[in-house]
């Protein structure tokens, strides 16, 4: 029998950090394969993480493909498996299989201005692109990151974002004004409009709540971005990751195979069922 496509590799948790506290807290986990080598991935791809006895969930890989030692995942505590993940400690062993889905065409973007527009936990899926671009800083022109959360406490990757400031423009926002917050107040799409990024030789990559993505795309279009210059990622309920279990499709596409990365030019051709 060939490789069992449903059998996960074992991976040990080597690092846990709480990014956001509260009811829907977010924690970042790093996992390393228990038995030596793990699979390689590209920016934007996902992996199925397991806790045996609880189940599996599809999570985007938040670390750059250039990082070989570990894979990073930022997981919001919303469901059965993610809640169990939040109870894990460094040293615990979980299951991982992947990588699944397509990836951001980062190589095609060399020499361009990159705009990253994230909201909430939507920073994680585009984080590998940001870190990859920063690691190859000379290959790209301006790198700009827009990112917002509901409140200052909902901002993830705080320290990492601060570190980015040296090599990229970082525009943070929170939905509502709050004491001690001196950056932008308002929703992410408005922050984008406020800064008026130029569509010239640019690519915009956005990920966040569906409603945010909708307005971000609307705003980018009004700023002159062509459909081909706008990229986003879809998420859907997934069980197999292999285009077989049948639930993550949008029209003819299984998001786990043809997605999660779509240019707006591609996405707008699909039925609106996500």
């Amino acid at each position: 029998m060939p490789d069992n496509i449903y059998l996960p590799e074992l991976a040990r948790i080597t690092y846990i950090k709480e990014e956001v506290a509260g009811e829907r807290s977010i924690k970042t986990f790093r996992v390393e394969p228990v038995n030596g080598d793990s699979f390689e991935h590209e920016c934007g791809q996902c992996a199925m993480l397991s806790i045996f006895g609880r189940g599996e969930m599809m999570i985007s890989i938040a670390s750059s493909p250039l990082v070989k030692d570990y894979k990073q995942f930022s997981i919001m505590r919303v469901g059965r498996v993610s809640a169990a993940f939040h109870d894990l400690a460094v040293g615990d062993v979980v299951g991982i299989r992947g990588p699944y889905g397509n990836s951001f065409p980062v190589d095609d973007w060399r020499g361009k201005n990159l705009y990253f527009i994230g909201g909430g936990c939507g920073l994680a899926p585009i984080w590998p692109v940001i870190t990859t671009a920063v690691a190859q800083r000379d290959s790209f022109k301006n790198i700009t990151v827009f990112y917002g959360g509901r409140s200052p406490r909902d901002i993830m990757y705080k320290a990492e974002l601060e570190k980015l400031r040296g090599v990229a423009d970082v525009h943070l926002s929170v939905d509502k004004a709050e004491d001690g917050w001196d950056a932008y107040c308002g929703f992410v799409p408005a922050n984008v409009m406020d800064k008026e990024p130029s569509s010239d030789n640019a690519i915009a990559i956005t990920c966040g709540p569906p409603i945010m993505i909708k307005y971000v795309i609307q705003n980018l279009r009004s700023l002159g971005f062509a459909d081909e210059q706008i990229y986003t990622t879809l998420e859907n309920k997934m069980k197999c990751g292999l285009g077989k279990c049948g639930r993550c499709n949008v029209g003819k596409d299984y998001v786990c195979v043809k997605g999660p990365v779509y240019s707006w030019a591609e996405l707008k051709e699909l039925p609106e069922e996500y």
């Binding site: 449903y6 006895g53 609880r54 189940g55 069980k239 197999c240 279990c245 049948g246």
Partner: peptide, 22 residues
């Protein structure tokens, strides 16, 4: 029709035992 679900069916605790089932 080929759609399926994958679940962990626990058959014992201490030690935790079970099957991953389609």
């Amino acid at each position: 029709c080929h759609c399926f679900d994958i679940n962990d069916e626990v058959t014992g605790s201490a030690p935790l035992k079970g099957n991953r089932v389609r």
